[in-house]
């Protein structure tokens, strides 16, 4: 027999079970509620994977079509900044995981600390990204808006990059394809950065709620599922980093 038989006027005829205040009435138990929301979060992340997958696929196809242009355009990225940002994001994933642990252990101070550290590292990532974006603007490498392919028609005009890679000048039709590389660069890192901004906004909200003691009463669902989102954004960067920065040296 079902234990929640509703009558026509909506009144629920049942004995009200004891349960924590954060358990919704349509769930049998807190664990069932946790599993349901966890499952839903994963379904959402799978749609996100498919969404970024489209960008990654375009990048792979274009890279194979216009290989010389993509290689020389990749040389414009600074591996040092890219590595720094990868480290920042990985450490932020760790602090987020520790935030989940703090919530599970009901340590309010630790939770606030780790959420704040995650927030700071997220901002540091965006800061480094903005340094890189500024350099792209200064070098006329923003496609469609502030663009010139002279760095690729005449690589020696860019002594800093030229001294490291000694790139040969590209033919004009191939040099024009470097704009496609930078279009994809901005589309992929920009979409990733947007996810970071959304994540940091939610973190701000969570830090306020954590200070009110919202997540240290045994109700870890929100922190746990936000953690999944944050780690997902980290995974996207784990793939962006080699594809954009690393694989064009040889």
């Amino acid at each position: 027999m079902s234990d929640s038989t509703s009558t026509a006027n909506g009144a629920v005829v049942e004995v009200h079970h004891e349960h924590p205040p954060y358990q919704r009435h349509h769930f049998e138990s807190v664990d069932q509620q946790f599993d349901a929301t966890n499952f839903a979060m994963w379904l959402f992340l799978l749609t996100e994977i498919m969404f970024f997958g489209g960008l990654f696929t375009s990048y792979l196809i274009m890279r194979n079509w216009y290989y010389p242009a993509f290689v020389e355009a990749s040389h414009q990225l600074n591996i040092g900044w890219g590595t720094a940002n990868t480290a920042v994001l990985i450490v932020s994933s760790f602090t987020m995981a520790m935030g989940v642990w703090s919530a599970e252990m009901r340590k309010k101070g630790m939770l606030i600390l780790f959420l704040s550290l995650t927030w700071l590292l997220g901002m540091a990532f965006l800061g480094i990204k903005s340094i890189e974006y500024t350099e792209k603007w200064e070098k006329f490498h923003v496609p469609g808006l502030h663009w010139s392919d002279s760095s690729f028609l005449n690589p020696a005009s860019d002594p800093e990059v030229y001294s490291e890679y000694h790139d040969k000048p590209l033919a004009p039709d191939m040099a024009a394809k470097t704009e496609m590389y930078f279009f994809l660069y901005f589309a992929m890192t920009g979409m990733h950065a947007l996810h970071m901004i959304i994540g940091i906004s939610i973190l701000t909200f969570m830090i306020i709620r954590a200070r009110q003691g919202a997540y240290t009463t045994g109700h870890v669902t929100y922190v746990e599922n936000f953690g999944l989102y944050w780690h997902f954004v980290d995974i996207v960067w784990i793939f962006l980093f080699p594809l954009l920065y690393l694989i064009s040296r040889y």
């Binding site: 780690h231 980290d234 784990i238 080699p242 594809l243 694989i247």
Partner: peptide
């Protein structure tokens, strides 16, 4: 590079 990225992803997915 992609093999290492896949390894890192697996660690994040399994543990974090």
């Amino acid at each position: 590079a992609l093999a290492i990225a896949c390894t890192k992803m697996t660690l994040v997915v399994l543990f974090f």
